[in-house]
Amino acid sequence: MSRRSGRVLDAYGAAFLLLLYAPIALILVYSFNSNVVNMMAWEGFTLDWYRSIFGLTTRLSESQIYVHSTEALLAAVRHSAIVALCASMLSTAIGTATALGLARHDFRLKRVYQGLLVLPMVMPDIVLGIALLIFFVGAGFKLGLTTIVVGHCVFLSSYVFVIVSARLAGMNTELEEASADLGAGPWTTFRRVTLPQIMPGVVGGALLAFIISLDDLVITYFIAGVDSTTLPLFIYGMLRRGIKPEINAIAILLLVFSFVVAATGLWLRSRRQ
């Protein structure tokens, strides 16, 4: 490739990164803007929006604060945390067990399982969301955190399955035979040989499941109950009613948190044996 076309490509790459990050950076800038009348016009630096969402004292008047109840916001955060933790742990267990089963055994229905596991990932969220809604309501379940956790597990298990399977595929199967040969039973072999080998995949899968669960809006939208609003639902509700500056601060806090979790996951995945 010639030097000039290389430079053109580099300029393009820079523009690409700008496209990815500029919208997010915009939120970051506005989250510190002290202009209470027009949030788009920069006036000065303030942390008041961050303070207001935690219910701390600010210079802002009552009418300027959109999150009237810090409790509602904190409840949404709590719901999201509970759902993401439970759903990611459950789906990690289920997805890992499935990956082990399909990677280490040959049986007639293997292809059926493999196909079935792809479906929840590629199906439009809204279809899965309403199917679960009809099912939960029809079966008489009360919509709430439990239904959200179960609903999330349906598609998160597939993500964990894909990541752990990739890790298992790269593992020498003779290691497990060597362990059995040296006197270790199936459980000991799993705990002392297989699990340490696939651990980066399991942790990476769990983190990915956690992030996707934390971020899920569409499926949760249909299967959440009135008193189980999660953070994305809370933000969606705020946005439907109009844009207020506190949203910037909430958005940035959420972004920082997701980026830290994602960076940890990506780092773990890049670490190879």
Binding site: P23, I24, L26, I27, Y30, M40, I211, L214, D215, L217, P232, I235, Y236, L239, I243, I247, A251, L254, L255, S258, F259, V261, A262
Partner: peptide, 14 residues
């Protein structure tokens, strides 16, 4: 990995 709703919100701002 940024929240989807927030990425949409950024475009509302723009």
């Amino acid at each position: 990995f940024a929240s989807l709703i927030i990425r949409v919100y950024a475009w509302m701002l723009i």
